[in-house]
Amino acid sequence: MTTRTYLIKEGYENLKKHGGKTISTILIICATMLVLGIFIILFQNVNKNVETVRLEQGLQALISDNATVEEKIYMQDQIKNIEHVKDIEYLDKEAAYEDAKELFKDQEYFLEGLENVQIFPESFVITFDDIEYAEQVKAEVEKIDGIYKVKYDESTIQAVITISNIANVFLLGVGFVLLVVSIFIISNTIKLAVYSNKREIFIMRYIGATNKFIKRPFIVEGTIMGLLSAVISFIIISLAYVVLYARLPHVGSTLGVFGFVPYSTLWYQVLIAYLALGLFIGLFGSAISIKRYLKV
């Protein structure tokens, strides 16, 4: 057995020795991690939904009735070359009429007397690679000859940007608070562990143990607690999501309604976040408490 494996064994033995405290610490960390997990999942879901809405949003550039085919091709090329334009689709009068029919399918009387497709303008539907540049693209498109009007749903775009910004700030804030709480809990447990091992530590110091040697079992103990909490929380939250997902609306399945994304697209993000978090709070929580409470 090398010194390293001995110290890992000591850390593990400490965990067993402080059984009750270990279990309660893991349970409390799991509780905070689960809350954090719910927020991570909500965060991802909000982002996915926002992303879907973002991708659906676009500009509609109305083409003057007297534009020739060549001019339309030229306009299309010009639009394509504008920065942040992702895609461009030509909509002829027939398609515009079909769109209007689809839009007013429940209020058909709106379209009564408008059966002449010629009154519907031809247009280009333009999508962006990033909704943040909507204004910029709109300004560029407006400059093009032959485009007489550029329409876009400003309120939806603004709402999407606002929702995603609020969600990001809120989730980061909650995440930070829970992180601090978890670190505090782990460091408190390690502080108690240091206290209950003070006899060993005293002897170690007299025999000539280096600081590293004294600290390592506690760091191992904290890390194991952090990682165990991560794994337990991951299992609980995964099962809960899979069970709930079956009963909740799915993203893209219902128009205009918030939908949940399948867990297959999420699980690895949750797992990585949990493991990184478990490792971080275990290492950091134990390191700060040893530094503070161990006279070495």
Partner: peptide, 23 residues
């Protein structure tokens, strides 16, 4: 500070109350 453990390794210390680990 980090050299102190190596000084202590040169000196074996025996206490009145033995200071053994009872587990």
């Amino acid at each position: 500070l980090k050299e102190i453990p190596y000084l202590r390794r040169k000196i074996g210390f025996v206490f009145q109350d033995f200071r053994l680990l009872y587990d």
